[in-house]
Design a binder for these strands. Structure first.
Ligand SMILES: Nc1ccn([C@H]2C[C@H](O)[C@@H](COP(=O)(O)OP(=O)(O)OP(=O)(O)O)O2)c(=O)n1
Ligand SMILES: [Mg+2]
Length: 1006
DNA sequence: ATCCTCCCCTAC
DNA sequence: TAAGGTAGGGGAGGAT
């Protein structure tokens, strides 16, 4: 029933795009290989004109295959590029996403490595069809021949009759008796559903392809030299003349999905056209609630809008022609689009498939210089505004022309000196035009536009503004900052205030590091049984595992998100839609970063089980992982085990207070808080070596009670719970056994059954409480809360107009408390219910006797502050007996204890012995203060080295905090510190860039 | 004050 | 038929 694990130890080896710097070397080697191997056996090489791309784990390895290909005259691609022509993709296993992406394209033929091996063995090129990857021959998938034989790329063309939806009314597929419905029986259906669903979802395409575009761009830009733009910068001249110092362009295809589809159909150009499903013959003409993804400008004249339901669009525009999607075309056009942009600038913000923001300042400056400096190369002192504008507009026309010539689709370009004005200008530029919006005309030009035209103001905020009498941007311009902040919140309010006046300081953001990864399905979810729900959940876990594998990350916090049919909600208007729902989420903190679908499933299974939702009421399921860390984190070479008993070890001579380690030692004669420089020698040897350490019972004893309690709690919550989950699910035999592993040591901690286990979060309890109420009261409460507009479920046009209350983000708790005149007195009741619900949960899932185990990595599961406090006790230099070498970096506390309890601790990176944020900040402050004339390079190196460690461990959070704090200190320090600051940040950015293909800090920050 | 957690909101 | 995904911003309110 469980499919074989696809990600065994060997599969860690994959070719990653980000290894591109190695790739060039490989290519050079490839050239050599060709020569070394001499003549191929045939006069005409076997793989002549054959392009091969190897992906994933293969046998023989990608390296060996490359040799084979080169030796026989083929081309070995290190990357898949849209323009490569026919490419043979060699793989033994493909992710569903890749099957979706590649399986539909005629440019790709997906084969097993055997094709290469056998061809060489036979001395001739064997028919590739005999080596077609079996995964693709799966009957649920479009056969390759089918996919390639069809001229129309419509995803619907490849539809089969099974697994359309999870609407399992078809009895032939699902046994009626729930007890006989094993996971194995419904799993394939769900896998196919997911596959098909994502393959057909435009929003999925939009979301996932963005990542690929970012990679595409950064890959293209990696090979370009950093532009020598600074040399030709005219910033000063322009500044003096009061001209804009930046040139930002917002480039956006006109009705993208439509343009791409009708580009070769001139007869449709002046007809109202939309793209979406629902254009089919058998589609319900009455209530067709399928979305219009995009409509052209002819259709818009009738009032049709993107995202509108087909029914409504047809009402507005009876002649509307609805064409199907062409996903492959969108992808190709999009990639070409971004490729073009990289020819003009390297400052590109990927907004979406059809939209980008670029900073073309350097190019504009270069052209200005060309125009204004006659023969000599002196910097001009005067530039006319009209010239400046015309140069910008000319460039925009140029870019637009290139885009059109390449893609046969029109894009429009808005230009200005900042992002918001460029965006607003685009609206004016459309369709098929360009427009420069000047700052000093912005207020006037924006005034008449509806508030919704400001980015960031969606339906919900527009409604609030409307109720405050604001309909247009002009209305917003009349408002004070404070009043806007009251309506929209501090940040958005401030933004809206500035944007309405055309002010915007934001930089064009190049690729940013991903903070979370997840999958949602909120369509087609109709479960009959729990088994179906769990089976589907398992599929989602597999999906999310594969996405994490692709991204080479693991996550530490897992969130299960469900949509549950709201009390009183009927079958939604939209076919198989989620309709009016309550959202329910549960999160779980994993003991260590993971991506294993099995582990994820064990958690999700339990989380879902504890929600106690009738399967028939589930309308949507999603899983996301947060606190991501790169794969480097789980380097087995550095990990060791800490027995938890260390906390209860024998007494030590250490007597400092661990609570506030840095303060506690301050002022004492032997205090370790030596000035930064003196710490260096000790510290530098610390990094990279593993100091042995023993930990005393006293350390534990001296921890403040609150910390002790929290640590215990943490163990109970995270370890005990997690391990129990791992071991007990679906396996009665393992339920009461204590896990043993070479890597694990007993904690010695009895796990007192506590009500902390399975305590749902307060917001969940509210849900649970609600469910216990009589249906009519449920309905009332639901109506109350939904009329508050708090869940974003009441969509425009779908619901009734409702009164607005100041805080639209009210939760049920707020609603209950706020609506009842007795104000907050309802709260204790809820708390009571809370307890009650918790007890119920425990009753349902009785605790089993369990002895916790902990791996070293688990220390990272402590709350940040506790973790740091505990670890700082390990590694902070402290007063040690004379017998111990003071010059040694080893932090050793003499502790007599059983040998089994002595463990080798890994190197834990520290900043001059400091592991707490507070300690490190203090060190930084002292460092900067004590050396007003600048720092010694060794100290800089120390700081930098530590930051580098953090980057490797992907603790970018700490990096950011430290760098920000450092910036603060540097600001108030002497001039000498500026270059130091710059050096550090530049280096850190470089590390982050090489590790994660994106910088951490924007240029403006530095 | 400053965090963390649990949501809602927004964009395409 | 239909395919309402996904990641980041940020606010409220509790913990520290
Ligand atoms: N609710 C929506 C909005 C957009 N899209 C898709 C289809 C659009 O073609 C594409 C780009 O979105 P835009 O907002 O740029 O809209 P268009 O490109 O269609 O029109 P225009 O940019 O000319 O206003 O995203 C979608 O599927 N569903
Ligand atoms: Mg567009």
């Amino acid at each position: 029933m469980t499919r074989p694990t696809k990600h065994g130890g060997t599969s860690e080896y994959t070719f990653r795009d980000y290894m591109h710097n190695k790739v060039r070397k490989l290519d050079e080697q490839g050239q050599c290989l060709r020569h070394q191997n001499g003549q191929p056996t045939n006069p005409v090489p076997i793989f002549d004109n054959i392009k091969v791309f190897v992906t994933g784990y293969t046998q023989p390895s990608a390296y060996e295959l490359r040799q084979l290909v080169y030796a026989h005259g083929g081309t070995f691609l290190h990357y898949l590029q849209a323009s490569s022509g026919l490419v043979y993709i060699v793989a033994t296993q493909l992710t569903p996403q890749k099957i979706r992406d590649w399986g539909q394209s005629r440019s790709y033929r997906i084969v097993t490595p055997d094709w290469l091996v056998q061809s060489v063995a036979k001395g001739k090129l064997l028919p590739w069809t005999q080596f077609q990857l079996q995964q693709l021959a799966d009957p649920s998938l479009p056969s390759l021949a089918q996919a390639w034989g069809v001229t129309d790329h419509r995803p619907s063309e490849s539809a089969t009759t099974t697994a359309d939806t999870l609407h399992l009314s078809d009895n032939t597929r699902v046994p009626k008796d729930p007890t006989t419905l094993t996971k194995g029986q419904c799993e394939p259906d769900h896998a196919h559903f997911l596959q098909r669903y994502y393959g057909s979802s435009r929003l999925h395409l939009l979301s996932t392809f963005k990542v690929e575009l970012q990679q595409h761009v950064s890959h293209l830009l990696c090979n370009t030299h950093p532009s020598a733009s600074d040399i030709s910068s005219l910033k000063e001249t322009l500044d003096n003349l009061g001209l804009p110092t930046r040139c930002i362009m917002h480039i956006d295809f006109d009705c993208f999905f439509v343009s791409a589809v009708i580009r070769n159909r001139p007869e449709l150009q002046d007809k109202p056209v939309a793209v979406g499903y629902g254009g089919g013959k058998s589609s319900n003409q009455r209530t067709n609630c399928s979305d219009i993804a995009s409509c052209n400008y002819v259709a818009r004249k009738s009032g049709v809008k993107n995202g509108m339901w087909v029914t409504k669009a047809r009402q507005l525009c009876p002649d509307l022609i609805i064409l199907p999607y062409d996903f492959p075309a969108y992808k190709r056009i999009s990639k070409d689009f971004y490729t073009i942009l990289t020819k003009y600038t390297s400052t590109i913000q990927v907004t979406s498939m059809d939209e980008a923001i670029v900073d073309v300042t350097p190019l504009i400056h270069q052209r200005l210089r060309l125009k204004y400096s006659e023969e000599d190369s002196t910097t001009p002192t005067y530039i006319a505004l009209t010239d400046y504008h015309s140069i910008c507009l000319t460039l925009a026309k140029e870019i637009r022309r290139t885009i059109f010539e390449t893609t046969q689709c029109h894009a429009s370009i808005g230009i200005s000196e900042n992002i918001i004005l460029a965006r607003m200008a685009t609206k004016r530029a459309k369709p098929a035009g360009q427009y420069y919006m000047e700052m000093n005309k912005a207020v006037q030009e924006l005034a008449a536009l509806p508030v919704r035209d400001l980015p960031g103001l969606g339906w919900s905020h527009a409604r609030r503004l409307r109720s405050a009498g604001m309909l247009t941007i002009g209305d917003i311009q009349q408002q004070s900052l404070a009043s806007l902040q009251k309506l929209c919140g501090t940040k958005l309010g401030a933004n809206v205030y500035d944007f309405a006046h055309g002010r915007d300081q934001r930089e064009v953001r190049t690729q940013m590091l991903r903070q979370s990864i997840g999958t949602d399905v909120n369509w087609g979810i109709r479960f009959n049984t729990h088994a179906e729900a769990f089976s589907f959940l398992k599929e989602l876990c597999v999906e999310v595992e594969q996405r994490m594998e692709n991204a080479q990350v693991r996550g530490r916090i897992i969130t299960l998100k469900l949509k549950r049919k709201a009390a009183g909600a009927g079958e939604p208007e939209k076919h198989l839609g989620h309709g009016w729902c309550d959202n329910i989420t549960k999160t779980f903190h994993l003991p260590q970063p993971t991506r294993s679908s099995d582990e994820l499933y064990k958690i999700c299974q339990r989380l879902l089980g504890n929600m106690h939702i009738p399967p028939g009421e589930i309308r949507g399921v999603g899983i996301q992982l947060q606190k991501l860390s790169g794969d480097q984190d789980t380097d087995p070479g550095t990990s060791g085990m800490i027995p938890i008993s260390k906390f209860f070890g024998p007494k030590t001579n250490y007597s400092g207070s661990p609570d506030k380690p840095d303060q506690s030692t301050e002022g004492t004669i032997n205090q370790p808080r030596t000035p930064p420089q003196q710490m260096m020698t000790v510290e530098s040897s610390d990094v990279g070596s593993a100091p042995s350490s023993q930990i005393s019972r006293d350390v534990w004893r001296n921890l403040p009670d609150t910390v002790k309690r929290d640590i215990k709690q943490q163990f109970i919550d995270a370890q005990d719970e997690a391990k129990r989950l791992y071991l007990s699910t679906h396996d009665e035999n393992s339920k009461c056994t204590t896990p043993r592993s070479e890597n694990m040591l007993y904690t010695g901690l009895k796990s007192p059954p506590t009500t902390q286990d399975f305590w749902p979060s307060p917001s969940q309890i509210d849900q649970d409480l609600l469910r216990t109420l009589p249906p009519n009261i449920q309905r009332e409460i639901s109506i109350i809360r939904h009329t508050r507009g708090s869940h974003g479920l009441l969509k425009p046009g779908q619901g009734k107009v409702v009164p607005l209350l100041p805080n639209g983000q009210s939760t049920l708790r707020d609603t209950l408390a706020g609506d009842v005149p007795v104000e907050r007195t309802t709260e204790p009741d809820i708390s009571g219910a809370h307890l009650h619900a918790a007890e119920e949960a425990i009753e349902m899932e009785p605790l089993t006797p369990y002895r916790g185990v902990i791996r070293l990595e688990d220390i990272y599961t402590f709350p940040l502050d506790i973790r740091n406090q505990v670890l700082s006790e390990y590694f902070r230099p402290r007063i040690v007996p004379d017998s111990l070498s003071p010059s040694s970096s080893e932090v050793t506390v003499s502790v007599p204890c059983k040998s089994a309890e002595i463990v080798q601790l890994p190197t834990y990176p520290s900043l001059q012995g400091h592991t707490t944020l507070e300690g490190q900040r203090q060190w930084l402050r002292q460092w900067v203060r004590e050396f007003p004339q600048g720092a010694v390079s060794s100290d800089i190196e120390s700081f930098h080295g530590y930051l580098k460690q953090l980057v490797i461990h992907k603790n970018l959070e700490r990096v950011t905090l430290l760098v920000k704090y450092f910036k603060l200190q540097v600001k108030s320090a002497g001039e000498q510190w500026a270059p130091i600051w710059h050096e550090v940040v530049t280096k850190v950015n470089h590390h982050v860039l090489t590790h994660y293909q994106s910088p951490l800090f924007q240029a403006s920050f530095m």
